[in-house]
Design a protein around this nucleic acid. Structure first.
Lengths: 201, 201
DNA sequence: ATCGAACGATACTGGACGGTATCATATGGG
DNA sequence: CCCATATGATACCGTCCAGTATCGTTCGAT
């Protein structure tokens, strides 16, 4: 019963900072950054605007923190791909494609947080931009490494191709121009990897 | 000398409606929709806010009109691809890829207007959304038609793949994660088409 | 010359929003 | 038991902005 911390009125409530981040994630993702007011985040987090400004210096800082969490999720996907398929770079790449493909239905009519944020934050000096830039660079590096490890002839080109495909699948899902984007995405990536068979032990 | 209409003080000034649309194109593209105020558009168009509201019922209507013009530009690219390479669907597709690839440097750090607008306008009832949806559907249809005409075994799949690639190249250029995106894009699309040779006379 | 429509400039309204100040209220460790 | 700290609630400020009203001016057609 009496847990050491957090014994709220009814349901176990998370501490305010996490509630705020959960609410921000939900609202930023579904309604955009600029459209969502700090007050709206506070309402959804069942707290107040003041509480938000106690944990985050500014709205922009909250946005950056949100994207940092999203980026960490993608990093986890990379890590899992590597630990689940050690020494099998092609399987790792396919696992990443599956991760994106599986996420498409959830994204549905609202797209990739990074793509959308970039559109909403043209100012290159915005704190969130550093998060995005770092994440994209790291992601590109890891993917290129996987392609090189897979013995593909031109790792940079193949990594670029896979990046195009993954990003494009998310965009096309968002604008609804492609049916069965997930399946098509997987089929496509498999085809790219099969162009240069080499993996078999 | 004395042209029939428009004899402005110094430089030949376009009529206000076109100046407004030019200014809107410039600002919406480079700074985003929500960030740009009607006043800012008026300033850049060397006119006044009032003049804008004489030509467009609302800011949203101006956004929609802007996207209509952008969509027409893409339609023109499709038309040119067809008339420049009649009966050669593979050349038509390559011409489209070249059109996108050539546009990448201009886009550079700011991305595709449709992708960005979608991010900034989550409200599906926004007038601009109809423009985007129609455009995307028409574009997908035409591309699928080209793929079918090219005798590719699975036109829907191939059209989806090419769409992924074209969209992804624009996104990747925007976030700066890929070097030489234009060249890589063309190489990629050529590879896709060459997977099923059939075109030669 | 004149009339009307389009254009330009300025001021205003009403609302939304980021951020702050100030109050009261828990809460948990000493 | 008590006090520092985190939290909650509310009111407020300055600013920005979409959209409107009203004025005067230009300019082309008749």
């Amino acid at each position: 019963m009496t847990s050491t911390t957090a014994r709220p009125g009814r349901v176990a409530k998370l501490p305010p900072r996490e509630r705020i981040l959960d609410a921000a994630e939900e609202l930023f993702q579904n309604e955009g950054i600029r459209q969502v007011s700090v007050q709206a985040i506070a309402d959804r987090a069942e707290t107040t605007k003041m509480a938000i400004y106690r944990h985050f210096t500014t709205k922009d800082a909250l946005v950056a923190e949100w994207l940092r969490i999203v980026a960490a999720g993608y990093q986890d996907a990379f890590d899992r791909a590597e630990t689940d398929h050690p020494g099998q770079p092609r399987e790792q790449i396919l696992a990443l494609a599956r991760f994106i493909a599986d996420g498409l239905p959830a994204i549905s009519h609202r797209g990739c947080p990074f793509i959308n944020s970039l559109a909403e934050l043209p100012d290159r000096s915005h704190p969130a931009r550093q998060v995005i830039d770092q994440h994209k660079a790291r992601q590109a590096g890891r993917l290129t490494g996987m392609c090189a490890e897979a013995g593909l002839p031109d790792p940079e080109q193949t990594a670029a191709e896979i990046t195009f495909v993954l990003e494009g699948a998310q965009v096309s899902t968002q604008n609804g121009s492609i049916e069965h984007a997930g399946e098509r995405l997987l089929k496509f990536v498999e085809g790219i990897l099969d162009r240069h068979p080499l993996d078999a032990p």
